[in-house]
Design a protein around this nucleic acid. Structure first.
Length: 488
RNA sequence: CGGGGUAUAGCGUAGUCCGGUUAACGCGCCUGCUUUGGGAGCAGGAGAUCGGGAGUUCGAAUCUCUCUACCCCGACCA
């Protein structure tokens, strides 16, 4: 592998793959479509997990764990649901292996399961089979359960983090007494997702609702957060579904009201996955590699000591003690690179890995009581006194966090255009970006546009203003304002 | 699942068309010395049953058959 990264404009796709590799985030697993999340990449996930876990607990949710295996028959209970997932399931059919008499092993035909098991592509069915047991009275509601788990979807085409056969996610599954409560939950979670994306991952997102064609299999309504990646394509970064009473009906989950009536339970489900890591790379990455928002960066400040001799090394080491002690006491995640690579190598390497702030200390700085700081989000170096540096680092991390968000927001906004007719829409899609326009609300129109432009309706934004719009395709009065874009 | 491609050291490749004896190169790795403020230099070294199997041949990385895996492009999808 060469040292240099290809420029993003010379092939965004291979740039992406190489960043994932060279930054040490992940590697291909031996089975097609699988991925090993390496420690550096996994720490990003752990940070995201920690942040979101806190958010959902603060809003009254609790964690639990449901089994990986789902009886095949469960999946078929909800018609749309099975249709959506039937073609991408991993199925367990046998439980034993045996020697083939030679050197190999074969599946033992005697161990065939009576009912095959599905490796969960999502957990609605198994969870609602349990909720049936747990819910009798209105007093049992609401149930606000989340689980952190892996799921398997046997996708045709996969890409590291963005679409892998197995991925990690959280899936929330809530049960409510009323339609209104379920709808509120769906939207509350959507807001949490927006906050996670914008305030922590520094990714600006549009909140909206999916069209019938794009909604989750088995949902009444699917809400989503949509983001624009560095190649101007859209990425669905999270979804929150109002499941209505679909799963309650499928699994016969009813509760008794205060006045002794029997009612079906209302449901929601929602999830974000390791795809978020892909979103971070694709949103913030540049030609030098990854750029990580400080709030989720495994290492927030990397310290590069510079020295020519053992004496200088120990001088630098001594000089650093105060800084390191201070940063550690502030809870800042630091890493000291004392390897014997050259400084130039280290600069490039840590830039590749996206560390937000680099602190360089060499003999010159020791002599002048200085520190050299380099921000990953902008070019140039800062030369500050030791005292100022210590005070300034938390502030700088904050600035970098905000700046990454602003840069991404500006990029998205400057690549979002209104389209008032089909030619304009085609132009926007061809050049890349989001096209906001009117839509007559018909699935047939949506399909025709998709066939001709390869762009899909990413969502009907919650802040839509369809009143004076005409459908971009048919010219008839628009039912909704929508965002068209090519998507991952 | 349709179309295309690839498989040679940890990684990236050359060699394959036109078969020939110690399989080459770059990066990385190990040792030593010199270096170190933007991807260090020199010297020495380790590492490959050329994806698996079968065949043709005096001889196969190279030709034939077959199997497998992965990548890219489509349809499908968080």
């Amino acid at each position: 592998m060469s040292k240099k990264l290809p420029k993003r404009e010379d092939g965004f796709s291979s740039w992406y793959t190489q960043v994932v590799n060279k930054a040490g985030l992940a590697d291909y697993g031996p089975v097609k479509g699988t991925m090993v999340i390496k420690p550096y990449g996994f720490q990003i996930w752990e940070n995201i997990k920690e942040i979101f876990d806190k958010m959902i607990k603060e809003t009254g949710h609790v964690n639990a764990y449901f089994p990986l295996f789902i009886p095949k028959s469960f999946l078929a209970r909800e018609a749309e649901h099975i249709e959506g997932f039937a073609k991408e399931c991993a199925i367990v059919t046998h439980t034993k292996l045996k020697s083939d008499g030679d050197n190999g092993i074969i599946v033992d035909p005697d161990s065939k399961l009576e009912e095959e098991l599905i490796v969960r592509p999502t957990s609605e069915t198994i969870i609602w089979s349990m909720y049936k047991k747990w819910i009798q009275s209105y007093r049992d509601l609401p149930i606000l359960i989340n689980q952190w788990a892996n799921v398997v979807r046997w996708e045709m085409r996969t890409r590291l983090f963005l679409r892998t056969s197995e991925f990690l996610w959280q899936e929330g599954h809530t049960a409510h007494a009323t339609k209104e409560e379920a709808q509120k939950e769906t939207l509350d979670i959507l807001e949490l997702y927006k906050s996670l994306a914008e305030n922590y991952l520094a990714i600006p997102v549009i909140t909206g609702i999916k069209t019938e064609a794009e909604k989750f299999a088995g949902a009444e309504r699917t809400y989503c957060i949509e983001a624009m990646m560095g190649d101007k394509k859209a990425l669905q970064a999270g979804t929150s579904h109002n499941l209505g009473q679909n799963f309650a009906k499928a699994f016969d989950v009813k509760y008794q009201t205060k006045d002794n009536k029997e009612e079906l339970v209302w449901a929601t489900s929602w999830g974000v996955s390791t795809r978020l890591i892909g979103a971070i790379i694709l949103t913030h990455g540049d030609d030098k590699g990854l750029r990580l928002p400080p709030k989720i960066a495994p290492i927030q400040v990397v310290i590069i000591p510079i020295y020519k001799s053992d004496e200088q090394k120990s001088l630098v080491k001594q000089y650093l003690v105060e800084i390191i002690t201070n940063l550690e006491s502030l809870g800042i995640r630091i890493y000291q690179d004392w390897t014997d690579n050259t400084p130039g190598y280290k600069f490039n390497n840590w830039e590749m890995k996206g560390v937000p702030l680099r602190l360089e200390v060499g003999p010159r700085d020791v002599e002048n009581n200085n520190i050299v700081l380099a921000r990953r989000d902008i070019d140039g170096k800062l030369f500050l006194s030791k005292e100022v540096t210590i005070k300034k680092i938390p502030e700088l991390l904050n600035e970098i966090q905000n700046n990454l968000f602003s840069q991404a927001l500006e990029f998205r906004d400057s690549n979002t255009h209104q389209a008032s007719n089909f030619d304009e829409l085609k132009k926007v899609i061809k050049e890349g970006g989001f096209a906001r326009c009117g839509w007559d609300g018909k699935a047939s129109t949506e399909t025709l546009i998709k066939e001709e432009t390869k762009a899909t309706i990413r969502c009907i934004p919650l802040d839509e203003k369809p009143e004076n719009l005409k459908c971009v395709f048919t010219g008839t009065p628009a039912k909704h304002e929508v965002i068209f874009a090519k998507a991952y």
